[in-house]
Protein backbone atom coordinates (compact mmCIF):
# COMPACT_ATOMS: atom_id res chain seq x y z
CA UNK A 1 0.00 0.00 0.00
CA UNK A 2 2.75 2.46 1.04
CA UNK A 3 4.86 1.44 -1.97
CA UNK A 4 1.90 2.08 -4.32
CA UNK A 5 1.30 5.49 -2.75
CA UNK A 6 4.97 6.44 -2.99
CA UNK A 7 5.02 5.20 -6.59
CA UNK A 8 2.03 7.33 -7.65
CA UNK A 9 3.27 10.48 -5.83
CA UNK A 10 6.81 10.02 -7.19
CA UNK A 11 5.58 9.64 -10.79
CA UNK A 12 3.39 12.76 -10.45
CA UNK A 13 6.31 14.70 -8.94
CA UNK A 14 8.65 13.38 -11.63
CA UNK A 15 6.37 14.61 -14.42
CA UNK A 16 6.08 18.04 -12.83
CA UNK A 17 9.83 18.36 -12.26
CA UNK A 18 10.65 17.11 -15.77
CA UNK A 19 8.21 19.50 -17.47
CA UNK A 20 9.48 22.43 -15.37
CA UNK A 21 13.08 21.48 -16.15
CA UNK A 22 12.40 21.43 -19.92
CA UNK A 23 10.54 24.73 -19.66
CA UNK A 24 13.50 26.27 -17.84
CA UNK A 25 15.74 25.15 -20.73
CA UNK A 26 13.47 26.68 -23.41
CA UNK A 27 12.48 29.77 -21.40
CA UNK A 28 15.79 31.46 -22.20
CA UNK A 29 14.76 31.62 -25.88
CA UNK A 30 11.35 33.23 -25.22
CA UNK A 31 12.77 36.72 -24.73
CA UNK A 32 14.90 36.58 -27.89
CA UNK A 33 13.65 38.61 -30.85
CA UNK A 34 13.83 36.77 -34.18
CA UNK A 35 15.83 38.44 -36.95
CA UNK A 36 14.24 39.55 -40.24
CA UNK A 37 16.51 37.12 -42.07
CA UNK A 38 15.16 34.04 -40.30
CA UNK A 39 11.57 35.29 -40.65
CA UNK A 40 12.13 35.64 -44.39
CA UNK A 41 13.67 32.16 -44.73
CA UNK A 42 11.00 30.39 -42.70
CA UNK A 43 8.00 32.50 -43.67
CA UNK A 44 7.17 33.34 -40.04
CA UNK A 45 5.05 36.48 -39.79
CA UNK A 46 3.80 37.15 -36.25
CA UNK A 47 5.16 36.68 -32.75
CA UNK A 48 3.58 33.24 -32.32
CA UNK A 49 4.94 30.35 -34.36
CA UNK A 50 2.46 27.53 -35.09
CA UNK A 51 3.08 24.30 -33.18
CA UNK A 52 3.17 22.30 -36.45
CA UNK A 53 6.23 24.23 -37.65
CA UNK A 54 8.54 22.59 -35.11
CA UNK A 55 9.54 19.63 -37.32
CA UNK A 56 10.16 21.88 -40.35
CA UNK A 57 12.26 24.30 -38.30
CA UNK A 58 14.23 21.45 -36.77
CA UNK A 59 15.00 20.10 -40.25
CA UNK A 60 16.33 23.54 -41.23
CA UNK A 61 18.39 23.65 -38.01
CA UNK A 62 19.94 20.29 -38.93
CA UNK A 63 20.90 21.60 -42.37
CA UNK A 64 23.07 24.29 -40.77
CA UNK A 65 26.57 23.55 -39.47
CA UNK A 66 26.34 22.47 -35.83
CA UNK A 67 27.35 24.87 -33.06
CA UNK A 68 29.27 23.37 -30.15
CA UNK A 69 26.87 24.58 -27.47
CA UNK A 70 23.31 23.91 -28.67
CA UNK A 71 23.15 20.20 -29.59
CA UNK A 72 22.14 18.96 -26.11
CA UNK A 73 19.51 21.67 -25.69
CA UNK A 74 17.94 20.86 -29.07
CA UNK A 75 17.81 17.13 -28.24
CA UNK A 76 16.22 17.86 -24.83
CA UNK A 77 13.56 20.12 -26.37
CA UNK A 78 12.95 17.54 -29.12
CA UNK A 79 12.29 14.92 -26.39
CA UNK A 80 9.99 17.36 -24.58
CA UNK A 81 8.16 18.04 -27.86
CA UNK A 82 7.61 14.30 -28.37
CA UNK A 83 6.29 13.96 -24.81
CA UNK A 84 3.88 16.87 -25.38
CA UNK A 85 2.61 15.33 -28.61
CA UNK A 86 1.96 12.05 -26.79
CA UNK A 87 0.04 13.94 -24.07
CA UNK A 88 -1.87 15.84 -26.75
CA UNK A 89 -2.85 12.58 -28.46
CA UNK A 90 -3.96 10.98 -25.18
CA UNK A 91 -5.86 13.99 -23.82
CA UNK A 92 -7.50 15.26 -27.04
CA UNK A 93 -10.85 13.61 -26.46
CA UNK A 94 -11.21 13.96 -22.70
CA UNK A 95 -9.40 17.08 -21.45
CA UNK A 96 -9.70 20.18 -23.66
CA UNK A 97 -7.93 22.33 -20.99
CA UNK A 98 -4.85 20.16 -21.25
CA UNK A 99 -4.94 20.32 -25.07
CA UNK A 100 -4.92 24.15 -24.99
CA UNK A 101 -1.99 24.15 -22.56
CA UNK A 102 -0.08 21.60 -24.69
CA UNK A 103 -0.69 23.75 -27.77
CA UNK A 104 0.94 26.77 -26.05
CA UNK A 105 3.86 24.63 -24.95
CA UNK A 106 4.32 23.29 -28.50
CA UNK A 107 4.36 26.87 -29.79
CA UNK A 108 7.12 27.57 -27.25
CA UNK A 109 9.09 24.62 -28.66
CA UNK A 110 8.63 25.99 -32.19
CA UNK A 111 9.88 29.40 -31.06
CA UNK A 112 12.89 27.72 -29.45
CA UNK A 113 13.66 25.94 -32.77
CA UNK A 114 13.38 29.26 -34.67
CA UNK A 115 15.82 30.93 -32.24
CA UNK A 116 18.22 27.98 -32.59
CA UNK A 117 17.98 28.32 -36.40
CA UNK A 118 18.64 32.06 -36.17
CA UNK A 119 21.74 31.46 -34.03
CA UNK A 120 23.08 28.78 -36.35
CA UNK A 121 22.59 30.99 -39.43
CA UNK A 122 24.36 33.91 -37.69
CA UNK A 123 27.17 31.61 -36.61
CA UNK A 124 27.58 30.22 -40.16
CA UNK A 125 27.64 33.73 -41.64
CA UNK A 126 30.25 34.87 -39.13
CA UNK A 127 32.37 31.83 -39.95
CA UNK A 128 32.02 32.48 -43.70
CA UNK A 129 32.93 36.17 -43.30
CA UNK A 130 35.94 35.24 -41.19
CA UNK A 131 37.15 32.71 -43.79
CA UNK A 132 36.64 35.23 -46.62
CA UNK A 133 38.62 37.86 -44.68
CA UNK A 134 41.43 35.38 -44.02
CA UNK A 135 41.62 34.51 -47.73
CA UNK A 136 42.19 38.12 -48.75
Amino acid sequence: MIAALICVISIAAFLQFFVSYCRSVISASRGVELSERVREITGIAGGIIPADDFERLLQLVRLCPERSDDGTKIRAVDAYHNLLRAVNFAARAVMPGVVAWVERELQGCSYFAAVALDRRISSSRDLFSQQAADRF
Binding site: A3, I6, F17
Partner: peptide, 22 residues
Protein backbone atom coordinates in the same frame (compact mmCIF):
# COMPACT_ATOMS: atom_id res chain seq x y z
CA UNK B 1 17.90 24.26 -12.81
CA UNK B 2 20.01 22.61 -10.10
CA UNK B 3 16.93 22.15 -7.89
CA UNK B 4 14.76 20.87 -10.77
CA UNK B 5 17.43 18.37 -11.82
CA UNK B 6 17.56 17.14 -8.22
CA UNK B 7 13.76 16.86 -8.19
CA UNK B 8 13.79 14.76 -11.37
CA UNK B 9 16.49 12.53 -9.86
CA UNK B 10 14.78 11.99 -6.49
CA UNK B 11 11.27 11.43 -7.84
CA UNK B 12 12.49 9.04 -10.56
CA UNK B 13 14.65 7.08 -8.10
CA UNK B 14 11.93 6.87 -5.43
CA UNK B 15 9.44 5.79 -8.12
CA UNK B 16 11.76 3.09 -9.44
CA UNK B 17 12.38 1.67 -5.95
CA UNK B 18 8.63 1.71 -5.28
CA UNK B 19 8.07 -0.17 -8.57
CA UNK B 20 10.68 -2.73 -7.51
CA UNK B 21 8.78 -3.16 -4.26
CA UNK B 22 5.44 -3.51 -6.02
Amino acid sequence: QLVLALGVYYSATAGSYALRNL
